[in-house]
Amino acid sequence: MSTTWPVVVAEDIRDSITHFAHIDGSVLRALQTVQTKFGYVPDDALNMVADICNVSRAEVYGVFTYYSDFRSTPPAPNIVKICVAEACQANGSDALVDAIRNEMGLDVHAKSRSGDVEAAPVFCLGNCALGPSAVVNNQILGRVTVAKIRAALGGVQ
């Protein structure tokens, strides 16, 4: 990370909070701002959010660890999310997870060998009549196969 990031983030966080100053809810919003900007929430940012929101670091840490969207380490350049909830299970999401492991060498909850792709499970994308579903780099895919995921990744392993 660039050494100048804290200043930029601090401005972003302040912006995000002042914009909604008339209704609170700032800690969650501030953390979302940091993660949107950097893809993760660096440890230092917790102190900064605490400072700006005028709450304890413990409180910010509590919010940070509660929500599964937040992460403390930088993400891989490519993210594959596989829906593993009931409606996709009914359409073979378990077999899809196996196929991704066997054919792509990609474990759900892990990064690929090159570190360029990371896979994670997700509970429901709201695409339950066209499962199994996945999201590859923010692109939603229905009736997913390994071939479709490969195509969406554009050759990255």
Binding site: G25, R29, F70
Partner: peptide
């Protein structure tokens, strides 16, 4: 009207957990 975005928590669909989350806290 304002849109607030969740952060990956199923239980925040429970109304009181959602209110906590809207207040920026853990969705308990």
């Amino acid at each position: 009207i304002e849109v607030r975005v969740g952060a990956g928590s199923y239980v925040c669909g429970e109304e009181t957990a959602m209110l906590e989350s809207l207040e920026g806290k853990r969705g308990v």
